Structures are given as C-alpha cells and as structure tokens.
Amino acid sequence: MKRHVIVTGGSRGLGLAIVTALLDAGYRVSTCSRTQGDALPALLERAGGDLFWQQADIGDSDSTDRFIQAAVARFGVPWGLVNNAGIARDGILATLPLVEVDRLIQTNLTGSIQMARGVLRQMLGRAGGGRIINISSIIGQRGYTGLAAYAATKAGLDGLTRALAREVGRRQITVNSVAPGYLDTEMSGTLSAGQREQIVRRTPLGRLGTAADVVPLILFLLGDAAGFITGQTLTVDGGIGC
C-alpha cells in the first residue's frame, strides 16, 4: 500500500516541488493551501487519484482540523507530515505592525504546532512509526536585518522539533527540521537586486538555492533509511551559515 504524506502549502514554490516529488516517488499526498495557484490543477489531473487538495488557512485551527479529517478519510492515517506552509514579512521590528507579528506567529509557528498535534493523534493510534518534517529556515539560526519576527517563528519550529522528537521517539516517530537558505522562489521575490547580489556574494557556492536542492533531503528523511535520525535541524544553504 502506498504511504500517505500530508504537505501544507503545496500550491507553489517549495511546497509544490515537494508534492510533485512525493507523487513521483510513489506516495499518496494530501495538501492544503489558501488557493490552488496556477500549477496545482494540472498536477491534480496528472496524479490519477493519488493527490488530494483542500482549501485551508494554516493559521486557522478549525480549517486545519477539517483538512486533516478529510485527508485521513481519503487516504488513511498519514505516514508523514511536512509542515511547509509559511509566510514572510519584511520590516524592522520597532515599526512592524503588531497585527503582522501576530499573523507570522499564528501561521508559521502556531499553525505548524496545530498540524503536528492533529496528525500525531492519528499516528499514535497506529503502530509502525512515522515522520514529521518542519521546514524552518537559516534565518532562524543566523538572523537577518528586518526579519526578527520571522526568525523567531522559525527558531520556534526548531525548538518544537527537538522537544517533540523526545516525546514521540518511543513510538518510532521521527521529528526533524530542514532549514533552507535563500531559495530562488516566490518568497524571495521581495528581495531587491542589491540584496540578492549580497546574498550570492556571501554564499560559498555562489548562488541562491532552488527547491531541487532541498527536496532530496526531505525525501530521504521520509524514507526508511532515515529511521535513526531525529531531533535534528539539517541545513541546506550553500554554506552561507558556516
């Protein structure tokens, strides 16, 4: 039987790349996002019944609960969860509106905690283990001017990873974070040309990352070969954080 993996924020960018790679690797995938975006409808048609999408706002607990229930009804108890959905807001903390800070925390951190909680309730009722992967960020480890609130949410995900790995390890459920560096995706589209050039100069490998640089690690962590890796934050940043 094909394993079922839930991916949040799968309509574009890294999330879409993760969903596509999982389908190609033989998984059944449930994903949610606020909109389908431009590419997801074609992928839904191509997937031949192995992909389920439902509209959900990761920052709304009722919305995520409905999505988890629908995903389990469609494909059964999930083997894995990839907490990928997130937003970025650029701004000096002293002048960043509090409503934006609240939205960052609710979406990036609280929403991921709610998803992990809901999926774990399903996993713990079934023997056989499982995988939880939180997509954090190099920003949470290194910091960056204008991204203090965003950095706090991603650092929180890494803390969640370490503590949750201890809680569920005896049930053979692993919990890890993947921390990408600066990726050439829509989320980095707000960077100015000067900022991009500066990041490239500071990166030993001399370029921004791509979704294709990150996806293989996620596939590995979901697989059986990664069964003794848990509580770790694995960085994919081209060396900018070294």
Score class of each variant (00 low, 15 high):
residue 36 Q to V: 11
residue 21 A to Q: 06
residue 104 L to Y: 05
residue 174 T to G: 02
residue 37 G to R: 07
residue 153 T to W: 02
residue 159 G to T: 08
residue 139 I to C: 11
residue 155 A to T: 11
residue 141 Q to S: 14
residue 87 I to T: 14
residue 33 S to P: 00
residue 89 R to D: 11
residue 26 G to I: 09
residue 42 A to Y: 03
residue 92 I to H: 08
residue 73 A to I: 02
residue 75 F to L: 10
residue 136 S to I: 09
residue 152 A to R: 04
residue 173 I to E: 00
residue 94 A to E: 14
residue 15 G to I: 07
residue 108 N to Y: 10
residue 56 A to Y: 03
residue 189 G to L: 10
residue 72 V to P: 02
residue 62 D to E: 15
residue 134 N to I: 12
residue 93 L to R: 04
residue 117 R to K: 15
residue 237 D to K: 08
residue 216 P to N: 11
residue 113 I to H: 12
residue 225 A to T: 13
residue 48 G to Y: 07
residue 218 I to G: 01
residue 162 R to Y: 05
residue 137 S to E: 00
residue 201 R to Y: 04
residue 92 I to G: 00
residue 33 S to N: 07
residue 160 L to F: 15
residue 69 Q to S: 14
residue 171 R to E: 06
residue 23 L to M: 07
residue 68 I to P: 00
residue 119 V to I: 11
residue 68 I to W: 04
residue 91 G to P: 01
residue 193 A to I: 10
residue 209 G to N: 03
residue 4 H to G: 12
residue 103 R to M: 12
residue 215 V to I: 06
residue 175 V to A: 03
residue 31 T to G: 09
residue 142 R to P: 01
residue 170 R to C: 04
residue 94 A to F: 12
residue 125 G to Q: 10
residue 192 S to A: 07
residue 150 Y to F: 11
residue 222 L to I: 09
residue 61 S to E: 15
residue 51 L to R: 06
residue 63 S to R: 07
residue 233 T to Y: 00
residue 1 M to Q: 12
residue 31 T to M: 10
residue 17 A to C: 09
residue 227 G to P: 01
residue 217 L to W: 03
residue 141 Q to Y: 05
residue 106 Q to E: 15
residue 94 A to I: 13
residue 160 L to N: 01
residue 172 Q to F: 10
residue 181 G to N: 05
residue 226 A to E: 00
residue 141 Q to H: 14
residue 178 V to Y: 03
residue 224 D to K: 08
residue 208 L to T: 08
residue 61 S to N: 09
residue 44 L to T: 12
residue 228 F to K: 00
residue 219 L to A: 13
residue 213 D to R: 09
residue 3 R to D: 01
residue 157 L to N: 00
residue 231 G to H: 08
residue 143 G to L: 09
residue 187 M to R: 08
residue 118 G to Y: 03
residue 234 L to H: 03
residue 179 A to F: 06
residue 204 P to T: 05
residue 155 A to M: 09
residue 10 G to Q: 03
residue 131 R to P: 01
residue 82 V to Q: 06
residue 11 S to E: 01
residue 97 P to H: 10
residue 220 F to I: 08
residue 132 I to V: 13
residue 77 V to Q: 10
